[in-house]
């Protein structure tokens, strides 16, 4: 597909959507959002770009293999659970640290965030894998 309107608006939207997906990821623990939704939104951004510029373009510019994203995400998520075991807690037990950060004020970081980032990566990796294996349709 070659549409000037689509490619121009994609250029404006792509990074905005990615940023919003990160917002959802970090808002996740106490507010609506989380790794899964964030990952889906980021995936939607990738698909939008694939529709506008072709899947080949997305896969090339991502510069990371989907397997690595899937595996790394799963590793992070499962590792969060196993890490709690290593630290003497129960499987998937979470802990948190509070810190005063300049500009942001008091920030509370929960270990579940690591789990969420893992889920985020898995979902993005899955979308990328879909684009790699099924995306040729978009390019014709």
């Amino acid at each position: 597909m070659n549409s000037l309107i689509l490619t121009t608006s994609t250029r404006a939207l792509f990074h905005t959507i990615l940023l919003f997906s990160l917002f959802l990821l970090f808002a996740g623990h106490n507010d609506p959002g989380g790794g899964f939704v964030g990952g889906l939104v980021a995936g939607a951004a990738l698909v939008l770009r694939a529709v506008a510029h072709g899947a080949e373009d997305v896969v090339r510019t991502a510069r990371v293999r989907p397997e690595a994203l899937l595996g790394g995400g799963l590793l992070l998520a499962a590792g969060t659970g196993a890490g709690a075991l290593v630290l003497g807690g129960d499987f998937l037990e979470s802990g948190y640290v509070e810190a005063d950060v300049p500009l942001l004020g008091t920030v509370k970081v929960v270990s579940v965030l690591l789990f969420d980032i893992g889920v985020y990566l898995v979902v993005v990796g899955l979308v990328l894998a879909l684009l790699v294996s099924l995306g040729r349709e978009l390019d014709t």
């Binding site: 293999r65 397997e67 595996g71 790394g72 799963l74 590793l75 590792g79 659970g81």
Partner: peptide, 15 residues
């Protein structure tokens, strides 16, 4: 947990 972690590692080691 162990097979899941291993599954993640084998994905990273794809190829």
């Amino acid at each position: 947990v162990l097979p899941l972690v291993a599954a993640a590692l084998t994905l990273v080691a794809h190829g």
